[in-house]
């Protein structure tokens, strides 16, 4: 086969076909994510501010500035607690719920239908609903707890102030994320569980294994990929989501709920120090790394 006709070979035609199919997606994301992202990298190494088009290159100055800021460390810690805590809660609630939904029972469809609503409501608006439920005076949660005699009356010291007490505030914003995310985790897990062929489980049963052994040895490995990917994508969403904290507490009181996205937004956009804001948000990447590694691993495992 001559060199000049190489492009006529089936392999070459397959390559050409393949890259043609890939081109639109690759072009789209490189133009609209890659290029802007490169621009942000440049911003993070400049002293750009919102109104100043002429920026100087300052090297790693902005990253150093972030590391000198005490609030930054609080934000990193809160971001981790928020993401990991919410992830664990979503995992636990989601798994339990998925096993329950796996059983055949009457009204399963209705239950399933009701459970997905938190996920389909626009997040910015359902957070406002939570803001009203967490209100310091008119909280429906407190009203109910108070009627059940679990807490005191309004004005008494054991009236919880959901968004005001340091630990509780972080828990409350995390809880909203969990509320929104656990039905989705359940559905993803349900999908995983449905895909485990019953014969495999039956075979394992015949071998005389206990439920826990079956769960660990048969079910977990089978649904691991879906678990990984589901949680990786969910982690990315949770980590970079600004709206819950921004709308509920804006990081307060005293940085109790400050997370990297709110700190980056308040520094970079509201205060206008674009360069430092970009640098702070780039610190999300080391935190995203575990999620990326999980993704890559699962991807590699899935190679041909």
């Amino acid at each position: 086969m001559g060199v000049q006709t190489w492009w006529r070979t089936p392999t070459a035609r397959r390559y050409l076909f393949g890259y043609t199919l890939l081109a639109p997606a690759v072009l789209y994301v490189s133009l609209l994510v890659g290029v802007p992202f490169a621009f942000s990298l440049y911003l993070s190494m400049s002293d750009a501010s919102v109104g100043n088009p002429v920026a100087r290159f300052v090297g790693l100055e902005n990253f150093k500035a972030a590391l000198e800021n005490a609030t930054f460390y609080t934000a990193v810690r809160n971001t981790l607690v928020f993401t990991v805590g919410a992830g664990i809660l979503k995992g636990l609630l989601g798994t339990t719920l998925a096993f329950l939904l796996l059983q055949p029972f009457k009204g399963r469809k209705v239950v399933r239908a009701l459970l997905v609503i938190p996920f389909t409501l626009p997040i910015a608006v359902s957070v406002l609903g939570w803001k009203w439920m967490f209100d310091s005076q008119f909280s429906v949660i407190n009203w109910a707890l108070s009627r059940l005699q679990l807490i005191g009356a309004y004005g008494s010291p054991d009236w919880p102030v959901w968004l005001g007490q340091p630990g509780l505030a972080l828990f409350s914003v995390m809880f909203v994320n969990v509320w929104r995310g656990f039905p989705f985790s359940a559905i993803v897990l349900l999908a995983g569980l449905t895909s485990v062929p019953p014969e495999i489980i039956d075979a394992a049963k015949v071998d005389g294994t206990t439920f826990m052994q079956r769960f660990r040895l048969v079910i977990v490995p089978m649904i691991a990929p879906i678990l990984f990917i589901g949680s990786a994508f969910d982690t990315v969403f949770t980590l970079s989501d600004l709206s819950i904290v921004y709308l509920l507490t804006n990081g307060g009181p005293d940085a109790a709920t400050e997370i990297l996205p709110t700190l980056a937004y308040n520094t970079g956009i509201r205060a206008g120090a674009l360069g430092r804001g970009a640098a702070i948000s780039l610190f999300l990447f080391p935190l995203l790394l575990p999620a990326m590694i999980l993704l890559l691993r699962t991807l590699r495992r899935r190679q041909y």
């Binding site: 609209l32 994510v33 802007p36 992202f37 980590l239 990447f285 991807l299």
Partner: peptide, 18 residues
Amino acid sequence: IGIFMTYLVPAIILFIPL
């Protein structure tokens, strides 16, 4: 992998250039 990685870039970084 390159395509998936772009999902990791948060909106607060992208909206100004966009």
